[in-house]
């Protein structure tokens, strides 16, 4: 299922520290690399410290109105509290990508596409527990074609321009997520 929509709305949510906000920035920047429009609106404030963090990302060919998302087309959740908070808002026919290492509960909705990613196990494969976000982004690209992998790599280079050694491991994670959803 490739999205041909002119405007795609995503909510990405998880614990502070799981790379939720970074995943959003990388995705938004990749869209801009392709000369698309993008907005990235973070949750900010006390909830970021140890609690849940989330960001609203919109990618569009057209001009973007409100950067605030009521009902996303795509929901990426890294922990259970985030799923319980945002799943009811995912639009009918939308895509849920969730971290099945932390979310064991049965997902009640049948009107959406569900993609389980065992991120704890997957990150063990590449021996880095911090890049679950890029695995999820890789899977997201494969499923939706929202932006190209090349644009993401370019964004990674920009984002880690002061820590070049991190580009390679993030790229590896991106590839792993991309390949994982094929099987």
């Amino acid at each position: 299922m490739k999205t041909q929509d002119k405007l795609t709305k995503l909510i990405i949510a998880g614990f502070g520290g799981q790379g939720v906000l970074t995943m959003g920035v990388i995705l938004a920047n990749s869209a801009v690399v392709e000369e698309k429009n993008a907005t990235w609106l973070p949750s900010y404030g006390p909830e970021m410290r140890g609690g849940t963090a989330n960001c609203n990302v919109i990618v569009a060919e057209e001009e973007i109105g409100s950067p605030i998302i009521t009902s996303p087309d795509i929901l990426v959740v890294f922990n259970l509290p985030s799923m319980e908070k945002f799943l009811p808002r995912l639009r009918k026919g939308g895509i849920l990508i969730y971290n099945s290492s932390l979310i064991k509960k049965k997902i009640e909705r049948d009107d959406i596409k569900k993609i389980a990613l065992p991120l704890v196990e997957l990150t063990k494969k590449i021996k880095n527990p911090k890049v679950g976000n890029m695995i999820a982004l890789g899977s997201l690209l494969k499923l939706t074609g929202l932006v190209s992998k090349d644009s993401v790599v370019e964004s990674l280079k920009k984002n880690f321009k002061d820590k070049k050694e991190l580009v390679e491991i993030n790229k590896k994670a991106l590839d792993l997520g991309y390949e994982y959803v094929k099987s």
Binding site: V25, A28, K36, A38, T39, W40, L41, P67
Partner: peptide, 10 residues
């Protein structure tokens, strides 16, 4: 406002 300051946009 806080939202405009915090958001990133193209």
């Amino acid at each position: 406002d806080g939202y405009l300051g915090q958001m990133m946009e193209s």
